[in-house]
Structures are given as C-alpha cells and as structure tokens.
C-alpha cells in the first residue's frame, strides 16, 4: 500500500540541509526542465562559489537568497514507486528555531545533519531535542563533509550519545 511519509531535514546552521535536499531532488531527476534551467541561471548569478548551488531550490525567499541562509520552512513534494514524500527543509539559525519547530511538528521522521568538521553543535542538540519533544519517532543521522573515517566514526559515536540523552 502506497503511503505518505512526511520528514524534515534539520541540524545546525550551514551543515548543508537545503543543499542535501536540493541535491537529492536534482539527482533523482525530480525537477522539471524549467526548474533545472532556473537553478543553473540562479547559481551563476547568486551562488557563493559559482557552481550549482542546490540550496537555491529550497531557499525561495529573496531575503534567504541575499543572505545565503534558510529563514523559514520550505515544503517539497515528490513520489517514487513505493511512496509519496513531503520533505520540509528547516532553518538552522538559532533565531529561527521556532520555524524549525513548525516543521518538526508536522513530520514523522527527521534527518539530522552534522558537519564533520564542526561536530555536534548546540543547535544540533537543540533540534534533536525539539524533534523528540514534537513526537518524532524515526531519525536518520547524516554526517556531512566527513573527510576521514576516524572523524566520521567519532562524530557518529558522539551523536548517538547525544541522541540517547535527548530521546
């Protein structure tokens, strides 16, 4: 039976939430041709590095593009053979935590991102706690920018510890 899975991406600021979701949509060919073209144009005009900036697929407000951050939750929709998905991309900044909580209240699963070079930060812990508080039962932990295996392992161990604490 085909169901609907609602999930969010959360974690600290600049850990790559919008980029991850954008990249998944792009790689899975879930974008329309005109959206892909707009992304390439926007990336050339506004991205920080000049390369394709996948976060621009999610950061749809003018202020977000100007500042290169996520301010409010963006909802995206896609489906596969097995399921329909609604993914909410949430802001990592402390001052927009209430918007992240809005996304968390709606989700059944949370993908929590951690940047390996930054480790588990205050916002990572806060988001984990909010997810748990909002009743999310399923978590995926995604370690980003993990350059070495040892760093990755240390992060994951630390994260699991934090989690056990939060849940």
């Amino acid at each position: 039976m085909k169901g609907l899975l609602k999930f969010i991406a959360c974690g600290s600021v600049d850990d790559g939430k919008s980029t991850l979701i954008g990249h998944i949509l792009y790689d899975a060919k879930l974008l329309y041709a005109d959206q892909e073209k707009a992304l390439e144009l926007d990336s050339r005009a506004g991205s920080r590095s000049g390369k394709i900036d996948y976060s621009l697929l999610l950061d749809g407000l003018m202020a977000e593009r100007e500042q290169g951050i996520t301010i409010d939750v963006a909802y995206r929709y896609f489906s596969t053979e097995k399921r329909s998905f609604i993914v909410a991309d949430t802001p990592g900044h402390e001052e927009y935590t209430r918007n992240m909580a809005v996304g968390a209240s709606f989700a059944d699963l949370a993908v929590i991102l951690v940047d390996a070079s930054q480790g588990v930060l205050v916002q990572t812990r806060r988001h984990s706690r909010i997810c748990s508080l909002m009743g999310i039962r399923y978590f995926v932990f995604a370690v980003n920018s993990a350059c070495s295996i040892t760093a990755r392992r240390a992060i994951i161990e630390h994260a699991l510890y934090i989690f056990a604490e939060a849940a």
Binding site: G60, L61, A63, I71, D72, Y75, N99, A101
Partner: peptide, 25 residues
C-alpha cells in the same frame, strides 16, 4: 518557491501585506 514557504494560515496586515520573514508558528 515562495509559496513553498507559506503557512496554511497566512496572515496579512491591514494593508494586506505578507511578511515572509515573520510568519506565525
């Protein structure tokens, strides 16, 4: 993309303006 950011209940000021940076939880 900006609709993707909007709440289901979207509040408007006296002059009907939407403030995307200050949406109600």
């Amino acid at each position: 993309k900006s609709r993707a950011k909007e709440r289901i209940f979207s509040f408007r000021s006296v002059s009907h303006a939407w403030d995307p940076k200050n949406q109600r939880p």
